[in-house]
């Protein structure tokens, strides 16, 4: 009886390991042989593969799927995922928007700051 459980859990680890290796290899292949030919498409594809692999490892290594109700770990994991998305996407969005609207190089920026300083804020 114990032995049966043991092999079952062990097989989950082996399965998770092989799926992770395949996903890593796929992402590597996408980049190295430039399968899509378009930079942005490759970037999106490998990001999706990374997310998929994170879910696979959360399932097969961290056993999130076997958690009993109330699923505190899963809930906090989803919450954290949303916070991480807000931090990363939000930061990139704000800074890219700023760069776009300011639209000046470092030297122009320096000149602009000097003029503003002369005027007094």
């Amino acid at each position: 009886m114990k032995h049966k459980e043991y092999t079952k859990i062990r097989d989950r680890y082996i399965y998770g390991f092989f799926v992770s290796v395949v996903l890593t290899g796929l992402a590597y292949w996408f980049v190295v042989s430039d399968v899509f030919g378009v930079g942005i498409a490759t970037a999106v594809a490998i990001l999706l593969l990374a997310l998929l692999q994170a879910v696979v490892q959360a399932w097969y290594f961290l056993h999130l799927d076997e958690e009993s109700k109330p699923r505190w770990k899963t809930q906090s994991f989803v919450f954290t995922f949303i916070m991480v998305l807000i931090i990363v996407v939000g930061s990139l969005w704000v800074v890219m928007n700023m760069n776009y609207n300011m639209n000046m190089g470092p030297s122009d920026m320096r000149q602009y700051m000097i003029e503003q300083n002369k005027k007094g804020f």
Binding site: T24, A27, Y28, V31, A43, I46, L47, A50, A54, Q57
Partner: peptide, 16 residues
């Protein structure tokens, strides 16, 4: 899990 994202975002995307 964190390293998957470092590999993807830093190394793979850095080359793309």
């Amino acid at each position: 899990v964190v390293w998957i994202f470092i590999f993807t975002i830093v190394y793979l995307m850095g080359v793309v």
